[in-house]
């Protein structure tokens, strides 16, 4: 199970590695714990040096109650899940074949330039195209719909997926593909039966990245939706009211927003970092 390298490490090297991992774990968990603490604080305790519930301050459930009772939360969770899953799937559906094509074939234009073009889609600050997108959705009669957000997020994450996966495919060993080709297999067959399964971990990773992007997208979510299609980022933006930012409720919303994807990725991560220890390629 352990990689041969791990087995080769000395005790101290392993201890060192472990310490590093443990430290980063602590560092990663810290903000979540802090969000939990914040979510249990009454407003008067928020900006005073009180860190441990019960010991330093009296925890209250008001913030949680207020959020969990809000019917918008369930709606937002559902919409966020839909937008995330649909746009990630659609983006991958389009990106994966294109990435494979860019990794294996040449085109009239140098592949590098095509990749650059995809990458350049990620440069424009989104605020510049916000209002035109709004107008576009108005004309398509898609204002305040989940579909509008799916379309927008697919458009934004597709280039990212193409660029990342193209390099992954290129890196992937071609031995089996070539062998299959010599055996007379067609391109699509090779793509579906060989290249894809080999790249499965990367595909999952790319899907998660696209999903995360759509899950967290706030600017277009707040502009294109106002009622039926509100997503979780919308709720977080709404932590700011005429009375300023409600940090305690924002903390609750942050935790609620992070829970489903983390659970999702927990199940998905079984497929990551397995390497090829089960060895698809054996000489």
């Amino acid at each position: 199970m352990r990689s041969p390298i791990w087995r080769s490490l000395s005790f101290w090297s392993r201890a060192f590695a472990y310490a590093f991992l443990a430290l980063w774990t602590l560092w990663t968990l810290l903000p979540f714990l802090w969000a939990l603490v914040n979510s249990l604080k009454a407003p008067v305790d928020t900006f005073s040096p009180k860190f441990i519930p019960v010991l330093d301050f009296k925890p209250v459930l008001d913030n949680w109650n207020a959020v969990l009772r809000d019917p918008n939360v369930v709606k937002a969770l559902r919409n966020s899940a839909l937008v995330g899953a649909l746009s990630a799937s659609l983006a991958l559906g389009l990106a994966v074949p294109a990435a494979y094509a860019l990794a294996r074939h040449s085109f009239p234009l140098p592949n590098q330039q095509i990749l650059l073009w995809f990458l350049s889609q990620r440069i424009m600050p989104p605020a510049v195209v916000l209002v035109p997108f709004f107008v576009l959705m108005v004309n398509l009669r898609l204002i305040d719909t989940v579909l509008a957000l799916v379309l927008v997020n697919t458009t934004f994450t597709l280039p990212l997926a193409v660029v990342i996966l193209s390099d992954v495919f290129r890196e992937q060993s071609r031995d089996i593909e070539e062998a299959a080709q010599l055996d007379g297999a067609g391109e699509v067959t090779i793509f579906l039966k060989i290249a894809l399964p080999l790249a499965r971990d990367s595909l999952i990773a790319a899907w998660l990245i696209c999903f995360a992007f759509a899950w967290n997208e706030a600017l277009f979510a707040a502009t294109l939706a106002s009622d039926r299609a509100v997503t979780l980022p919308f709720l977080i933006l709404a932590s700011r009211s005429t009375r300023g930012v409600d940090f305690n409720t924002a903390a609750v919303n942050t935790l609620i927003a992070i829970l489903p994807p983390v659970v999702l990725s927990f199940f998905a991560q079984r497929y990551l970092a397995r390497g090829l220890s089960f060895g698809a390629v054996k000489g």
């Binding site: 707040a222 502009t223 106002s226 009622d227 919308f234 933006l237 709404a238 700011r240 009211s241 005429t242």
Partner: peptide, 9 residues
């Protein structure tokens, strides 16, 4: 019908 939006927008 009320549409609620964040103050930012």
């Amino acid at each position: 019908n009320l549409a609620e939006v964040p103050i930012e927008t």
